[in-house]
Design a protein around this nucleic acid. Structure first.
Length: 486
DNA sequence: TAGGATTGCAA
DNA sequence: TATTGCAATCCTA
């Protein structure tokens, strides 16, 4: 039981889909009371806050206290069905996140700079090659100018529209690249440019004098119970390209001879689907320690040899089903015909019939009760489930299908973080939990603590679901600091 | 200078 | 016509 309360989280646990639960908005909504704005107190920022009259500053500060207390009293008197969730997950997590944020993340500034120089050189070369082909210089980062060059000057075929013009996004350029090399060059240019501006320059800019980044986690913004990360966003560091891996290796241990350890939940959402839907075939596949995507591929392609391409399709189907993907969506995602996509999705449901049954039951339940709930009993009202508009209703159905899985998985890792931080504390370890990336935790590990940390992190994460028919699975990856391996 | 539009990175 | 985020750049108002 947490020793404190948080009115923001108290509101979020009941209304996670409402954006902007700031104190002044809640005050206006619940008490029809408009709070003093920072701008009015500082006279539109002409004054520093420290120069504001003491009595004004006192009013401004006390208002926060009074309104917070009023909110607390109001929330306390309501029958909050999620009170256990709040006490066991959301509130205790606050202290854990505080520790994670204050421990910071160490970055190798020289390594970042080295990658930056490499990317800048690549960009110069690519730019030259592009301008050679277009016979004209233009700003490659401007979609509008790319559009003018490709479709007006060079008259390439165009097919996908945006609101205002024809799209020049990566998938369009990729189609064009079969016949026009310039398209591939623009893809590469944008790719390198993105990596440079978002992940090299931006992170370099906000490193402190000791080369640490101080990210912030927000526990009350997402509609799916996940955390988000800002300044910088450390949850979208690239991973699917060799340059991307260079960037990942710029994150290092703060300890001499230290290492970083990453602990990943393996296919957590498909495992949860098996558990929640109680599907015999899906559960059996995990019990046999089968590669789940390979197993699904065997169902989708009976009497065939399963190669990488069949497995890839099966993997897309496995993940797509969790979002109740349409045949259209699947066909777009992996570039197959809609007819094939339809066949695969139907084959999935006949292979795992309890999943289909569970989906149908969930929607029926939701239509009657207007809400769905997670494994831990967190409820989510789906207000549009009985909407007459088919598009809105379908979106609501997808939400009803996805929420119990996605949100359960978010709660699982939150519970794991709480237990792990308590473990680190009680064992007096010097290692630190430094990152959370939705289904992955990263630790900065003090020398000699590798074994005890890796073993216990795995044990804790895998045993969050106590009575499930299958256990969760966690993969541990350890890597040394770039400094040591170079 | 603020904010919309477009684009792209992650799970 | 799969979800959730954060952030960059360009460009208009």
């Amino acid at each position: 039981m947490a020793k404190f309360y948080d009115t923001l989280l108290g509101e979020y646990v009941q209304n996670p889909w409402i954006r902007g639960l700031s104190l002044d908005k809640l005050s206006l909504r619940d008490f029809h009371y408009e709070m003093m704005s920072y701008d009015s107190v500082t006279q539109k920022k002409k004054l520093n806050f420290k120069d504001v009259e003491l009595s004004t500053a006192a009013d401004y500060s006390c208002e926060d206290v009074v309104i917070t207390n009023k909110l607390f009293q109001a929330q306390k008197s309501k029958k909050v069905t999620e009170i256990d969730i709040l006490n066991n997950i959301d509130l205790p997590l606050i202290e854990i996140l505080k520790t994670v944020e204050l421990d910071w993340v160490k970055v190798n500034r020289d390594k970042l700079k080295e990658i930056g120089t490499l990317l800048e050189n690549e960009l110069v070369i690519l730019k030259k090659e592009i301008f050679n082909l277009t016979e004209e210089e233009f700003n490659i980062n401007s979609p509008k100018q790319v559009w003018e060059i490709l479709f007006e000057k060079l008259a390439l075929p165009k097919w996908k529209k945006t609101k205002t013009w024809y799209s020049v996004s990566a998938d369009v350029l990729w189609e064009l690249s079969h016949d026009y090399p310039v398209a591939q060059l623009i893809i590469d240019y944008r790719h390198y440019s993105k990596l440079l501006s978002t992940y090299i320059d931006w992170i370099s800019d906000i490193l402190d004098s000791n080369d640490f980044v101080h990210t912030s986690y927000n526990a009350a913004v997402t509609a799916t119970g996940r955390l988000s990360s800002t300044s910088p966003n450390l949850q979208n560091i690239p991973s699917s390209h060799w340059v991307a891996w260079e960037i990942r290796w710029a994150f290092i241990s703060r300890f001499e001879w230290g290492t970083l350890i990453a602990a990943d939940y393996s296919q957590v959402e498909v495992r949860l689907l098996a558990i929640i839907a109680n599907d015999e075939n899906l559960l059996q596949a995990f019990k046999d320690w089968k590669d789940i995507h390979h197993k699904t591929a065997e169902f989708l392609f009976p009497n065939q040899v399963i190669t990488n391409s069949e497995r890839k399709i099966a993997k897309a189907v496995n993940f797509g089903v969790i979002y109740w993907i349409s045949a259209f969506g699947l066909s777009k995602m992996i570039n197959i015909s809609m007819k094939d996509a339809k066949v695969y999705i139907e084959a999935f449901y006949s292979s795992y019939p309890a999943v289909k049954e569970y989906f149908d039951n969930t929607i029926t339940w939701c239509e009657t009760n207007w809400y769905v709930e997670t494994y831990f009993g967190r409820k989510r009202i789906i207000a549009w489930i009985n909407d007459k508009n088919a598009i809105i209703k379908n979106a609501a159905k997808r939400e009803a299908i996805n929420m119990p899985i996605q949100w359960t998985s978010a709660d699982i890792i939150k519970l794991a973080m709480i237990e792990i931080q308590n473990f680190i504390h009680s064992e007096n370890l010097q290692s630190k939990m430094i990152l959370q990336v939705h289904d992955e935790l990263v630790f900065d590990v003090y020398p000699w603590e590798n074994k005890i940390l890796a073993e216990n992190v795995k044990k804790i994460m895998e045993s969050i679901l106590k009575n499930a028919e299958i256990t969760l699975k966690v993969d541990i990856v350890e890597w040394e600091s770039w400094k040591d391996t170079k």
